[in-house]
Amino acid sequence: MAMYALGLSVLQEEISYEKTQVKQVAYADDLTGAGKITELRKWWALLKENGPTIGYTPNTTKSILIVKPEHYENGVQLFSDSGVIVTKDGQRHLGAVIGTEECKAKYVEEKVSELVKEVGVLSGMAKTEPHAAYSAFTHGL
């Protein structure tokens, strides 16, 4: 983690807010930027240009631009040659979701459904192995 942080700090200077008007944050080897679409396009170009010189290669297949519905066409047009996925619905990001209310509701519904299924398995286990089920619940679930 520390090495990623050191390496990315150099890159973040090259793609800084002063140069692109994009607010950014880095976690391990992930970068996130937020701002106007035209500024994000500049930020992406600087990232693609400067990243490889320090060993950071952006993965376009995992790069997603989340835009408001009224900016979707502009986002698709500006990022058409980049390989970046453009969505107006939303996407999971660092364990949460960013996007429309429908996207958020679907995400929560899936998470709750998964939790209900796991509790069902644990409750079946608890009939014969109550301590193991309790331990799995408190330490794993």
Results as ranks from 00 to 15, higher is better:
Glu13Asn: 07
Glu13Phe: 05
Lys19Tyr: 07
Asp89Ala: 10
Lys23Arg: 15
Ala34Lys: 11
Gly83Ser: 02
Asp30Ser: 03
Thr60His: 09
Thr32Asp: 04
Tyr27Glu: 05
Tyr17Glu: 14
Ile37His: 02
Ile54Ser: 00
Leu65Tyr: 04
Gly35Tyr: 08
Tyr27His: 01
Trp44Met: 09
Gly55Leu: 05
Leu65Asn: 04
Leu94Val: 10
Gln91Tyr: 08
Val22Pro: 10
His71Asn: 15
Ala96Lys: 12
Gly90Thr: 09
Cys103Tyr: 06
Glu102Asn: 10
Thr61Tyr: 08
His93Phe: 12
Gly83Glu: 07
Leu47Ala: 04
Tyr17Asn: 13
Glu13His: 05
His93Thr: 07
Asn59Leu: 09
Lys36Met: 11
Ile54Trp: 00
Thr87Lys: 01
Gln24His: 11
Ala45Asn: 15
Phe79Ala: 01
Val22Asp: 10
Phe79Thr: 02
Gln91Ile: 05
Glu14Thr: 02
Val97Glu: 09
Thr20Leu: 07
Ile37Arg: 06
Phe79Lys: 01
Asp30Met: 02
Val25Ile: 14
Val97Asn: 12
Asn74Pro: 01
Ala45Val: 13
Cys103Lys: 14
Leu40Trp: 05
Val97His: 12
Val97Trp: 15
Pro69Tyr: 07
Tyr56Val: 05
Val25Ser: 14
Val22Leu: 03
Glu13Ile: 06
Ala96Ser: 14
Tyr72Met: 10
Lys68Ala: 15
Leu40Glu: 08
Asn50Tyr: 04
Phe79Asn: 02
Gly51Phe: 00
Val25Ala: 13
Arg92Thr: 12
Val84Arg: 04
Gly33Met: 10
Gly51Arg: 00
Val25His: 13
Gly75Val: 08
Ser16Leu: 01
Glu73Ile: 07
Pro58Ala: 09
Lys23Trp: 15
Gln21Glu: 14
Leu65Lys: 05
Thr20Lys: 09
Leu78Thr: 06
Ile66Val: 13
Thr32Val: 11
Ser16Ala: 08
Ile64Gly: 00
Ser80Glu: 13
Val86Glu: 04
Thr100Asn: 06
Ser80Gln: 11
Gln24Ser: 15
Leu47Pro: 00
Glu102Leu: 10
Lys19Phe: 06
Ala26Asn: 07
Gly51Val: 00
Thr53Ile: 05
Thr87Gly: 03
Phe79Cys: 03
Gly99Cys: 03
Ser63Gln: 04
Glu101Phe: 10
Glu102Cys: 09
Thr100Phe: 03
Pro58Leu: 03
Phe79Met: 03
Val22Lys: 07
Thr32Met: 11
Asp29Asn: 09
